[in-house]
Write a protein that binds this DNA or RNA. Structure first.
Length: 822
RNA sequence: GCCCGGGUGGCGAAACUGGUAGACGCGCCAGACUCAAAAUCUGGUUCUGGAGACAGAGUGUCGGUUCGACUCCGACCCCGGGCACCA
């Protein structure tokens, strides 16, 4: 290797070596501990952007580090291939989504190979492969049979541009996440997965996910949103009961304020509101207005709180007093029972509403301490002590909570209840490019699942688009079927699944991508859970929650024996360009291909790792790449110069000069520090710094003799090995140049030689009143008294101590001495 | 409004357990090599003063704890993310 460093040549040849040796093909083995390393698979949008480069480089660094540490590592890759952009491309350019997707995959796979990711390509699949979605359909039917799937007509978010239903989470600020236009509300029959059955477990298990960032767990906790409260029935007053007798049911987290209720508020869609509308034109007009407002879907949050009184009253469950019922626009039909008890004294929203409409405000809680409380200015919303509450007076809120709950339970008018904010997962999409929902609608038999032997329901790939609507809805060959039960003409479901379905279990399928009977086999239990999952912060809630849900579904179906899918989680910050998230529109600066051709994969990977710690968002700039290309070249030249100077003897620490010993200490410090940075801290930016420092130390070292040159060789080998997870190509080439015959990916991370870390002399900082005034060099095992007198003898220190009284001397062994004077 | 992060040179950042703030890199400046340029190498580079040794100031702001604070505590300002008529 006497040639000058040419990254493209080196990288191609090293990649061929890996391919020939099939280094990254993983198999189940009892010989070493398994390590499943996974980065979130990409949507095949066309080409990689810098966000992808960051994500998969981080994944690959973790992969390669764990190989060096002796694990049996598996790092797979696949494609989240269903989704809207393929359809949009088809509509725009007339290319069928399947072909567009396959072309993109081929191109992006090539880019990943060029970047040198150590991926087990034998496991690759795309979610649009029938062999994959076959099992998703199969599992959906199993869940249907278990009662975890249901069909419900419900209000949905309708995107008028994309002509499809959006999940709540796909609506951002009232607009579709892709189209950007305001969503409308429509009623439609939809398929739902009962994720709420698992709400409790999904929440509780977060406490045990020690390998997850606290911020992500918090986001999931908020999303699931557990609240502890009481469900209370307010009987309809006798005069109104004739119209239909069901009590008005509400849910509250503050039963301690029950005696402060002065009105009830129900949603416009609530049955009581409809009932009142029949009798009162004012109420009917208001209910109508609310519906229109929701259809227009403006900024709900800034909406003025409005309502109308009905002539209905209910009875207070404890006192029997009549309470007026209002229809209010701030009550959500979808949450709880669509009705609330209003306590204007102790809820700010209820307070504002009461002030606006002149409804009485009654104080039932007073501050336990000295907090201010002026019900003319605002509601008092803290917990406190009960007043004006009869037998409950004087109780603290917490005790009153229990006492009032018991009193209600005794009367049969209430019960304690845990509520969740989480809703069931609507999985139907009125789109073409997705997994067909394996159901058949028969006039006689109703819903009939597609029989197992007829799976998969294949998505036709030869289609033509007329407008945005799914071609399936007009494709007779697809939807005209005979009912599997009665044989009569029936209609196949033409909706497809939300693509979050595919990404909810792909990680398990990678363990056994060819499993046939059924979707997973015993290999899934060898590889899962994923030991380290890497991906973008934008998936902190939905994808991760759905995947956790699916894992539990697969566990309860007997296919998986763990509770959680991802043991350790690394959430990447975003790669920004001009302050915005990187995307296709970012132009050349965001195009890794240009950089790859100019500087090579090692430089691009290193620059990306060096730019910032992984969890931090940062603005990408090309400037750093050139610097890292320079560093690769320096390392290359350093190794060449070293080799050109001839052979070295076996390392003998006893023969080293001071310079040799210093270098050797630096080598082993680097090894120790990098091990911690790679394994525990996940700060790969500081690994790059550490390798730079070691390389600088080698450059500066002037070997006194051949023994020192042996220390230089050791330093170079450590630098190369430590650097290899980040820059795997150049390091492989240098590794073999340094005389190693086995591949670097098969090497073992060396143990730190503790004796090399020992220093005979240490430099102590001397401070006077906390300010650095000098340094003293002393033997490492110096006693404290000697250190003190040496510090006081320091010339510059003397100047600051002279004429003053030494009050105290603080000595931190091996670090510093602080002399306190006055 | 509530819940998380974060604020350090011209720039990206480091300082992990309270112990030399600015490692490492980018950029810039100077020098070497060169007819010249690029590349490469060497040195310098927080600010202010000083030829320099050195001194003073300095990690968003104000205050506190401590021999000693980027790090801990209290109040506040700003930036980013998440949630939000959730009863």
């Amino acid at each position: 290797m006497n040639a000058p460093y040419d990254p493209r040549t080196v990288e191609q040849s090293v990649q061929q070596t890996w391919d020939a040796a099939r280094c990254f093909e993983a198999g189940e083995s009892a010989a070493a501990e398994k390590f499943y390393c996974l980065a979130m698979f990409p949507y095949p949008s066309g080409q990689l952007h810098m966000g992808h480069v960051r994500c998969y480089t981080l994944g690959d660094v973790i992969n390669r580090y764990h190989r060096l540490k002796g694990y049996n590592v598996m790092q797979p890759m696949g494609w989240d291939a269903f989704g809207l952009p393929a359809e949009n491309a088809a509509i725009k350019n007339g290319i069928p989504p399947a072909r567009w997707t396959r072309d993109n995959i081929a191109y992006m796979r090539g880019q990943m190979r060029e970047l040198g990711f150590g991926i087990d390509w034998s496991r690759e699949f795309a979610t649009c492969d029938p062999e994959y979605y076959h099992w998703e359909q199969w599992f959906f039917i199993k869940l249907y049979e278990k009662g975890l799937v249901y069909r419900k007509s419900s209000m949905v978010n309708w995107d008028p541009v994309d002509q499809t239903v959006l999940a709540n989470e796909q609506v951002v600020d009232g607009c579709g996440w892709r189209s950007g236009v305001p969503v409308e509300r429509r009623e439609m029959p939809q398929w739902f997965l009962k994720i709420t059955d698992y709400a409790e477990e999904l929440l509780d298990e977060l406490d045990r996910l020690d390998g997850w960032p606290e911020s992500v767990k918090n986001m999931q906790r908020n999303w699931i949103g557990r609240s502890e409260g009481v469900e209370i029935d307010f009987p309809v007053s006798a005069a109104d009961a004739a119209a239909g007798g069901d009590p008005l049911r509400v849910y509250t987290t503050r039963p301690d304020t029950l005696l402060g209720v002065t009105y009830m508020a129900v949603a416009a869609e609530h049955p009581l509101a409809r009932q009142a509308a029949e009798r009162s034109p004012e109420v009917a007009a208001f209910v109508d207005k609310c519906r229109n407002m929701q259809t227009a879907e403006a900024e709900i949050a800034t909406l003025e709180k409005e309502g109308v009184p009905t002539s209905l009253t209910v009875e207070h469950p404890l006192t029997g007093e009549p309470i007026p019922v209002w229809v209010a626009n701030f009550v959500l039909m979808e949450y709880g029972s669509g009705a609330v008890m209003a306590v204007p004294g102790h809820d700010q929203r209820d307070w504002e509403f009461a002030r606006k409409y002149g409804i009485p405000i009654k104080q039932v809680i007073e501050p336990a301490g000295d907090e201010p409380c002026d019900l003319d200015a605002a509601a008092f919303t803290d917990y406190g002590k009960l007043v004006n509450s009869g037998e409950f007076d004087g109780m603290a809120s917490a005790r009153a909570f229990a006492a009032i709950a018991e009193a209600l339970e005794a009367k049969g008018l209430g019960r304690r209840r845990t509520n969740f904010r989480l809703r069931d997962w609507g999985v139907s999409r009125q789109r073409y490019w997705g997994c067909p929902i394996p159901m058949i609608h028969c006039d006689a038999c109703g819903i009939v699942p597609v029989p197992e032997q007829d799976l998969p329901v294949l998505l036709p790939t030869e289609v033509t688009f007329e407008g945005v609507r799914s071609p399936l809805t007009t494709m007779e060959s697809f939807y005209r079927v005979n009912c599997p039960q009665c044989g009569a003409a029936a209609r196949r479901e033409t909706d497809t699944f939300d693509t979050f379905m595919e990404s909810s279990w792909y990680y398990a399928r990678f363990a056994c991508p060819d499993a046939n009977q059924p979707m997973l086999d015993e290999r899934a239990n060898y590889w899962t859970p994923v030991d380290h999952y890497v991906g973008g912060i934008e998936h902190a809630i939905l994808h991760l929650l759905y995947a956790r849900f699916f894992h539990k579904l697969m566990r309860d179906a007997g296919m998986i024996n763990s509770d959680e899918p991802f043991t350790r989680l690394l959430m990447l910050g975003m790669v920004l360009k001009d302050g915005r998230k990187m995307s296709k529109s970012s132009g050349d600066a965001g195009n890794p291909q240009v950089l790859l051709e100019k500087y090579g994969a090692d430089a691009v990977r290193t620059a990306m790792m060096f730019a910032a710690p992984p969890d931090q968002s940062f603005e990408w700039s090309e400037a750093g790449v050139e610097g890292q290309a320079r560093f690769c070249r320096r390392l290359w030249n350093l190794v060449q110069d070293h080799l050109a100077a001839g052979d070295v003897p076996a390392l003998n620490p006893a023969e080293l000069s001071d310079a040799g010993r210093d270098l050797r200490r630096k080598s082993h410090e680097t090894l120790q520090r990098a091990d911690d940075d790679y394994g525990r801290r996940l700060t790969f930016n500081t690994v790059v710094s550490a390798v730079h420092e070691l390389t600088n130390a080698v450059s500066r070292t002037e070997p006194a003799h051949e023994h020192d040159r042996a220390a230089v060789r050791e330093a170079l080998k450590i630098a190369v090995l430590v650097f290899s997870p980040i820059a795997p190509h150049v390091t492989q080439e240098l590794w073999s140049a340094l005389g190693e015959r086995a591949l670097l990916v098969e090497a073992q991370w060396p143990a730190v030689d503790e004796s090399a870390l020992v220093q005979d002399t240490v430099e102590l900082v001397v401070q006077v009143n906390g300010k650095v005034r000098g340094h003293v060099s002393l033997p490492a095992d110096v006693d404290e008294d000697t250190a003190r007198s040496a510090a006081l003898e320091n010339e510059n220190v003397e100047r600051f101590v002279a004429g003053k009284t030494v009050r105290k001397v603080i000595a931190v062994p091996g670090k510093l001495i602080n002399i306190v004077v006055s």
